[in-house]
Amino acid sequence: MLIAVDFDGTIVEHKYPAIGKEKIFAFETLKALQSKGHLLILWTIRTGKELEDAVEYCRKNGIEFYAVNRTHPEEEIDEHISRKVNADLFIDDRNVGGFMGWGEIWQWINKDATDEETQNYQKRYLKAQRKTFCGFLQAIFCGK
């Protein structure tokens, strides 16, 4: 599948024009999607330096996109027309009903995953949630 993925509010928390904190399990899920052969498009409102920063942030976290704000890497961009891309699936925090979460996205896309694949994924996801929650508690009680 060709999958368009938003950046702010989806891969990271909304802090535009800064880069927010990574959403729990975003990069793990994106890597799992790529390992299954899906092509990822970064589809974002960002342009210029903010876009470069987002692409570099993703690259440092192990994600290289098939294309950025276009359907194919070789597609010419005309800044005077819409940057609508043609994808099989759009992952965006502005979906109807909001952002469902990366764990749910992985499970929805990988309906045919083996029980072992699903269990391994769920264990890693829960570990990431605990790590985030423990960091939250530490910030409250330790002032960090």
Rank of each mutant, 00 (worst) to 15 (best):
Q119I: 02
H72L: 10
T114Q: 15
D88P: 07
G62C: 03
T118D: 05
H38P: 06
D112K: 09
V85M: 01
A87D: 05
K111P: 02
V55R: 04
T10Q: 06
A139P: 08
I91S: 00
G48N: 14
F25G: 12
N120H: 12
I19C: 10
E75P: 01
E64L: 13
E50H: 13
G98F: 10
G101E: 08
K21D: 14
K21E: 15
D115C: 02
F99K: 01
P17M: 08
E52G: 11
D93Q: 03
G103E: 09
R124D: 12
R94P: 00
E117N: 06
F90W: 04
M1W: 01
N95S: 07
K31M: 05
T47W: 11
K49V: 11
T118H: 01
T44M: 05
S82Q: 06
I63F: 02
K21A: 15
E104A: 03
G20E: 12
W102V: 00
A18P: 06
K131M: 04
A26T: 03
T114N: 11
N69M: 06
G101M: 06
F7R: 01
E50P: 02
I41A: 07
G48R: 15
Q129L: 14
T118Y: 07
Q34F: 02
M1Y: 03
I91F: 08
Q129P: 00
D92G: 09
H38N: 08
R70C: 10
Q34M: 12
N86Q: 10
Q119G: 04
E52K: 10
K123N: 11
I105T: 02
I105D: 09
G48Q: 13
L89N: 00
I41H: 12
I11N: 10
F65A: 01
M100A: 11
H14I: 03
R59A: 09
L40Q: 12
F136D: 12
H72T: 08
D53L: 13
